[in-house]
Design a protein around this nucleic acid. Structure first.
Length: 501
RNA sequence: GGGCCGUUAGCUCAGUCGGUAGAGCAUCUGACUUUUAAUUAGGUGGUCGUGCGUUCGAGUCGCACACGGCCCA
């Protein structure tokens, strides 16, 4: 075999594919094997919706001509007649073909078409004697030959790996998969409209950044050839969105991808979708209220119920969401602990040690408290809950609390034991922000490769003055998981990252 | 990163104590003009994830690796 042919070397092919290739070769001989000169006028679901209620006799009195097209999923040939089921974007519809109507040649060709072929048919609507709306076909054409056999018609495709790697097969075979991604699209649309209606401006900020900022995470590193410059895939849009608030866009939001160079799991994909939104002249309290109505709206208006079930647990979005501080939540879920134990560095370190949490030398009280919180509280926050008053030590971009400088005016939002959102009153004191960046740089120099860079232009922007502002980020993938009852993030991302085959 | 489980026909799955590789669907050849995973008769189809080892003999036992799933960190 020549080099030219190696790229379509059919090494993974079997007899079934060879047979289909032979059929395609015959089609090529007969003319255009990939015709596109058809008009598809009707979708399956529309026909069921409009005509599904009429009885058999009604169709005998009313001639309803239709043209349909789709992928042939089932075919039952009974000598001189046949039923086939085709699937289009909306659903399925049954075709009834007869040899004496189509003619011997067309009918015999049709009988040798394969499951998976894309076909077109025109004919009259009718109901079978079992009452199924069907098309009595007078003209039928093969539009696209399918060369690869579909999974078995009854069990479908169940292998997770193949479903993720070859999502197109998953979508062909599994209607639930299709539904989940339709739901995802509706949720995103709802969120977009929610903010547009509240006078937010939708914007797009750089995904390629010279200084990756706005989150504590390891970035992907890339390179710009013409500038001969190292660049980073963004880990968050935050610092750019706040520059826009400085610029006078008082309400902005962005729904798009972030990239974090971390492992893959049922809850982590290296690229994931977030919405971040910023509102001037608001505080984190306003955003908690906003988040609460957004979540309630998605549940009732998109999913259709204020109660949703996730992996067997029921969450109620109708009741007011619980709100409690990091500190009080630790004490609430660990009644054996005293305030003294978690309010001093020595006491908290001892608690962490007993819990088996590995601590680094540089950890201050705030960081240790968060470790204790994550270990003992987070997974128990099942009903929608806001946790507030995060330590400043773990909140390098949040505004310090006026009364207690140890904490910030920040919250995280939890459902089902998982963090869904993170918001705070923004730090708009340029000098405080510069100092916190310096601390992050010191952490980075000490070996913390997740610590932030110093973003001098962001400081410069704050020096022009940012109005008091509150901002929040919500992980869209995790949110969709919740509302589609998906156990893995891979079930809500069309093409999740996998190790190469 | 650790533990457990999985990988057999295009798909869904069996495979006993280590002794010739199985079923259903799909596909091919027939029968069949209202089926519903159509029915029905017959046939084709395998690098048992990869490699090494033990053995007269490995889908099966051992080791390593790859990919995946679940749980844990």
């Amino acid at each position: 075999m020549s080099e030219h042919e190696t790229h379509h070397d059919h090494h993974d092919e079997n007899k079934l594919i060879t047979q289909r290739r032979d059929k395609l070769a015959k089609l090529r001989e007969q003319g255009n094997a990939f015709p596109n000169d058809v008009v598809r006028e009707h979708k399956a679901a529309d026909l069921h919706k409009e005509y599904g209620e009429h009885d058999k006799e009604w169709f005998e009195e009313h001639a309803i001509p239709v043209t349909v097209a789709g992928r042939m999923m089932l075919q039952r040939v009974m000598g001189k007649a046949s039923f086939a089921t085709i699937s289009d974007v909306s659903g399925r519809i049954q075709l009834y073909t007869q040899k004496n109507v189509l003619g011997d040649e067309v009918f015999d060709d049709y009988c040798h078409w394969d499951l998976g072929d894309i076909i077109w048919a025109s004919g009259m609507l009718f109901k079978t004697k079992t009452g199924e709306l069907s098309v009595k076909v007078h003209d039928i054409r093969l539009l696209t030959k399918s060369l690869r056999p579909l999974p078995e018609k009854f069990h479908g495709l169940t292998d997770h790996e193949q479903r993720y790697r070859q999502r197109y097969i998953d979508l062909i075979m599994n209607h639930d998969t299709r539904d989940a991604f339709v739901m995802r699209s509706k949720i995103v649309s709802y969120i977009r409209n929610f903010f547009l209606q509240r006078d937010y401006l939708e914007v797009e900020t750089p995904m390629l950044q010279v200084i990756p900022g706005g989150a504590v995470a390891r970035p992907f590193i890339t390179h710009h050839n013409a500038l001969d410059l190292p660049m980073y895939m963004r880990i968050a849009p935050e610092l750019f969105l706040k520059r826009l608030v400085v610029g006078g866009f008082e309400r902005v939001f962005e729904i798009n991808r972030n990239f974090r160079n971390e492992g893959l799991s049922t809850r982590h994909n290296p690229e994931f979708t977030m919405i971040e939104f910023y509102q001037a002249y608001a505080t984190y309290h306003d955003l908690m209220d906003l988040t609460e109505s957004l979540m309630r709206g998605i549940a009732t208006d998109v999913v259709g119920s204020h109660e949703i079930t996730y992996q067997g647990e029921t969450f109620d979005f109708d009741k007011p969401f619980a709100r409690m501080s990091v500190r009080s939540s630790i004490l609430h879920f660990n009644p054996e602990l005293s305030a003294e134990q978690i309010d001093t560095l020595e006491g908290a370190r001892e608690v962490a040690r007993k819990l088996g949490i590995p601590l680094k030398d540089g950890y201050g009280l705030g960081k240790v408290q968060i470790e204790i919180f994550e270990k003992t509280v987070e997974h128990r926050l099942l009903q929608p809950t806001f946790i507030t008053e995060y330590p400043a030590e773990v909140s390098p971009l949040a505004r310090r609390n006026d009364a207690n400088p140890f904490i910030t005016d920040r919250f995280e939002f939890f459902v089902g034991g998982r963090e869904i959102g993170n918001g705070f009153s923004e730090l708009n004191d340029a000098e405080d922000q510069a100092e916190r960046f310096m601390q992050q740089v010191a952490d980075k120099d000490a070996g913390d490769d997740e610590a932030m860079h110093f973003d001098a232009d962001y400081i410069r922007a704050l020096e022009y003055g940012m109005p008091p502002t509150a901002g929040e980020g919500i992980g869209i993938d995790r949110l969709v998981m919740l509302f589609t009852d998906a156990p893995s993030i891979r079930d809500v991302i069309l093409f999740p990252h996998m190790r190469p085959e």
